[in-house]
Amino acid sequence: MTSPLSKTGMAACLIILILCALTPLLQSDYLIDVVTEILIVALFALSLNIIIGYSGNVSFGHAAYFAIGGYVNAILLTTYGWPLLPSAVAGVLAATLTAAIVAYFCTRLTDIYFAMLTLAFSMLVWAIVFKWRSLTNGDDGFTPVHVPAMIDDRTAFFYFTMIVIVVSIAVLWVITHSAFGRSLVAVRENVGRAGFVGIHTRRMRWQAFVIAGFFAGVAGVLFGMYHRGMYVESAFWTQSAQVLIMTLLGGIYSFFGPLIGAAVLFMLERLTNEYTEYWPTVLGVILLAILLFQPDGLVGLGKRIKNKFGGGGSP
């Protein structure tokens, strides 16, 4: 995980990037919508993995920062008529700031207590969004979101999203592969020993949480503009669980794992919903399968298959 990107890896990334960028050429509004949404949830899942895969804690309330980013941006754009840049920045900052405060309390605890507390904080956010009707429009959802004319077009918004997401993922890559990222892994692997070698574990975990909150906020800002609306469900704990499963499905011990998990799960949900209302069962069975048979997710599965058939290349 800490090794730099191999040549084949680099090439693969580039190809995927180009393929994504060419989506609008297929002339399908549906496809543009799908890729846009996948990009957004992928960033959301990647951000969560900074907490789980790197610092080793499980947040059950990550949707809160996603929702805060989305709502603050939506409200500033629409109700107060702010231009895009300051409004989006304010949205992301609000998410980051909230994450910083919540993390201050949560990082005092570990494990189960950490998970439960993140959940409770996110539900507080949910309750506030729900009840602050004059600002958020409560249960009805905040619609419409005023999207600036420049990106108020399917293709334009797609490219805008793509640029923001690619830059965000690149930054996340750099962070996780820096000295900071390596010490985070050390924290996860062995809290005691990391403490010995002079890493302030609580502060590291706090920083990881804040970074995750920042990028969840970015994803939320894009989400609100894409849907031209924000809904309270975005902050509900089941949303946090869903993104957690995406992360886990892809594989928490790999950088790109959550991205793959997000894409797969998103498409699966779309397609399942067309045929049956029992998407939760499908999701539950997938989850059981991962937990009982494949704890390192799809990426781990891919690696195992590759090793079995003697495929060389980087591990």
Partner: peptide
């Protein structure tokens, strides 16, 4: 499509019915 008594789900379903 099922609107599920849920505005977010209904919006997604409506959009998909139009684009797909």
């Amino acid at each position: 499509r099922d609107s599920k008594l849920n505005p977010a789900a209904a919006a997604s379903a409506a959009k998909e019915m139009v684009t797909k």
